[in-house]
């Protein structure tokens, strides 16, 4: 048991190092996220002029939502995992895993976890630096139960995020080029995951429908718990149940695609 854990611990540590090497890449991305935050600030403060509340929330609450969204994105978002997996399949690099006692999902998940640990910690630097500018507009609810329910939601969101990317990556067993599919699903994810606007601003029936889709649990759900957009603990408990369901479904699909895909896979060369 411990030897198995040790194996993935080594992968995790290697992932940690390689992510620290690419910190410059991260700095550029982090920098532009804050440009995005300026767009959000300008747009929403203009929308709030003359309205004390939009959808039952004041400007501070909505802006806090968008700030939290960026932080959570760097903590759990799957950025290019699908692309990396696709490349490993196309270049035949996965062949080595087929010969060794390494579970490919666990291997990729360890790398993903180490990468998010690095970016999740690094994003705190710009947040702390800009905090004096941001603090007047941030309203964070101080209910302790939010942490108790928010963290499990965040963890499951991470698995869903990675799981979806993993499934898309495995599509490379069938298609030569998955970049188009990935960008298409990215658009869908940002819309239905609540990255373009808080989902609760949708018409009530659409909001209800979105709660049964996996995208809702990818990003919006944990962020809304932490920032106070969801406030009914019993409804959140139901949400956690649906989220757990989606997590299992996505993991099962990943496993299914892996097994089916391997049957098609041809390892060439030596």
């Amino acid at each position: 048991m411990f030897s198995i854990l040790n194996k993935y611990r080594a992968v995790f540590l290697v992932g940690l190092q390689s992510n620290l090497v690419y910190r410059m890449n991260f700095a550029v991305r982090g920098f532009f996220s804050f440009f995005h935050l300026i767009v959000v600030f300008i747009l929403w403060s203009a929308a709030y002029t003359g309205n004390r509340e939009i959808g039952g929330f004041n400007f501070g609450q909505t802006f806090t939502y968008f700030v939290a969204l960026i932080i959570v994105q760097f903590m759990i978002g799957a950025f290019n995992e699908d692309y990396q997996i696709s490349e490993e399949i196309r270049n035949g690099l996965i062949n080595q895993f087929l010969l060794k006692p390494v579970n490919y999902f666990a291997y990729r998940f360890s790398i993903y976890a180490s990468a998010r640990l690095v970016t999740g910690l690094l994003i705190l630097i710009p947040v702390i630096v800009t905090y004096p500018l941001l603090k007047d507009y941030l309203t964070v609810p101080a209910d302790w139960w939010r942490l108790a329910l928010g963290f499990p939601a965040l963890l499951m969101s991470a698995v869903i995020q990675f799981g979806i990317a993993y499934c898309f990556g495995l599509m490379s067993f069938w298609f030569l080029e998955i970049q188009g599919l990935v960008v298409l699903s990215m658009a869908l994810e940002s819309l239905l995951g609540g990255q373009i606007f808080p989902l609760d601003l949708l018409p009530a029936w659409l909001f209800r429908v979105s709660q049964f889709l996996p995208y809702y649990y990818q990003m919006y759900f944990p962020v809304a718990i932490f920032t106070g957009r969801l406030s009914d603990p019993s409804a959140i408990m139901v949400g956690l149940g649906i989220q757990a369901g989606w997590m299992l479904i996505i993991l099962a699909i990943g496993q299914f695609l892996w097994q089916r895909g391997l049957r098609l896979h041809t390892a060439v060369g030596g």
């Binding site: 747009l43 203009a46 929308a47 709030y48 002029t49 003359g50 309205n51 939009i54 959808g55 606007f197 601003l201 949708l202 018409p203």
Partner: peptide, 11 residues
């Protein structure tokens, strides 16, 4: 469309 569901004018 979603923003204008909640407000009549932006800037």
């Amino acid at each position: 469309s979603v923003i204008y569901e909640h407000t009549k004018s932006v800037a």
